[in-house]
Design a protein around this nucleic acid. Structure first.
Lengths: 149, 149
DNA sequence: TCTGAAATTCATTCCTT
DNA sequence: AAGGAATGAATTTCAGA
């Protein structure tokens, strides 16, 4: 991977629907080599995919909560499999040390969160503590990774 | 916004580079009304943008850390502005209660993190405590919001 | 690996229902 | 609002440097 590839990654992280021609212009190539590079990056798994970024409030997911979950050491796989089945859990990390796990949850409002907490989160297999932190405001949105030249 | 719009959002979150024709087929429309809807969703800010999802390890950002930062109540704006200038901070939230703020940081390795911690994170204006948690493994990646029909 | 041109597919507009 | 046809762009392939 050379600097042009990194330029491509930077541009496509900013706008994933750039046309190959426009992208080619920005990185100083014509469209055929540019397309070959993009396809190669996709094939190599450097570009994992493309997605539309949706406004949470516009789809009734304007209330976001960070949830730290402490759990016993048995049934890690079962615990994580359970997480994957809860669509409101939009992001989840296994951590070293405690808490063992951190989730980002997106729901409509506090009432919806209360329901999720009661019915799903506290019922996670092996969970011993569930601690919720309301997100007041996203300061920086998930998405682009910095790509150094 | 009706069910077709929600279908469109669901599909474009899975694959942001779908052609209008392919998308139209999946949601049961022909391409002209489908394109009108997509443009409308973009204009209304429901679709905030499109981006390529890049493999962190492939661009030297395979070491990720969750950082909770406690800070004094002065200079909130200054603190958050400082966060925006640190490219390694790929995600940041202002929280209610403590910790006041949570960051996700992406760097190459532990040594790079140690340097960032020393030079940038502990130097954040108003920060009174910086607590780091290494991410062992992402269980669920950030990206798609659930869109109910 | 790039360029440039040719063939194909797609996006977009306009008009009708 | 949606469908269908027409046009202009973009993607994609391929031969040659």
């Amino acid at each position: 991977m050379d600097n042009i590839d990194r330029d491509i990654l930077r541009e496509l992280q900013k706008d994933g629907r750039l046309t190959i021609q426009e992208l080619a212009g920005r990185v100083g190539l014509t469209s055929s080599p540019c397309m070959r590079r993009v396809r190669q990056l996709e094939q190599d798994g450097v570009i994992e995919g493309y997605r539309a970024v949706v406004n949470p409030a516009a789809v009734g997911r304007g209330f976001e909560v960070l949830v730290s979950v402490e759990r016993d050491t048995r049934s890690v796989a079962e615990f994580e499999a359970a997480l994957l089945t809860i669509p409101e859990v939009v992001e989840a990390y296994r951590l070293m040390g405690s808490p063992g796990c951190l989730l980002r949850v997106a729901v409509a409002d506090l009432a919806a969160y209360e329901k999720l907490w009661t019915e799903k989160l506290t019922a996670l297999p092996g969970a011993t503590a569930v601690n919720s932190q309301i997100i007041m405001k996203p300061i920086k949105q998930p998405g682009g990774l910095p790509v150094d030249r």
